[in-house]
Write a protein that binds this DNA or RNA. Sequence first.
RNA 1: GUUCCAACG
Length: 240
Amino acid sequence: ALLNGLCKVGKINEAEVLFHEIMYRDLPADLVTFNTIIDGYCRIGNIDKAFTVKEEMIKKDVSPDTITYNILIRGLCKLGRAQNSMHLLDELIEKKLKPDIFTYNTLLDGLCKLDDRRGAEQLFKYMFENDVLPNVLTYNILIDRYCKDGYLEEAFKLMEDMKNNGISPTTVTYTTLVCGLCKTGQLEEANALFKDMLDKGLPQNVVSYSALIHGFCLHSRMQEAVALLKEMEGKCLVPN
RNA sequence: GUUCCAACG
């Protein structure tokens, strides 16, 4: 817990000192401790040290679990190495561990961010075949990819799919779509969808406002952008 | 107690 606290505030160096102390004195370290420090390294992009710690835990007879793999997979994905992380998925399965929804979402996001929509679609099918059902994040990730590719129709179709599967869209879902509509110049639609969030009882946060404001700015509609900024301040949302 | 998604930068 202490290590996690340090890692979260970007104090990986302090966490590192503490971790070395634990290793040096041969103090007991459990699975969560190892996972936490591995995640700390991944978050600063030091994937090599993350893997080194994975080796260390094995030496201490602590077996990596699905969360360990999820953390490493995410670390690789954030470095744009989603392909490498697919090998980790294979390793995870070889070790008789079960990939969970976090594993799939992380991989899907990594593939999507590499513009590999095909790969993502394949993995999406694969997860169904392995009895892992998509959650709201899974849909959000895919919707984002379709939006960025300009396939707004497909994106909206996915939102319908998620509803049909009993999953409610969130602020992130709407913001993603608002952003997609802005990028394709469909500002009126974006504005309408943004308003829709309120009717659906979803909070409009700083990110949703920013997406729409940015859309208006890109299309030189400054007066509307400023109006939104004021509206946002009126809601005590702090512009960043 | 540890892991997954959206704007701008």
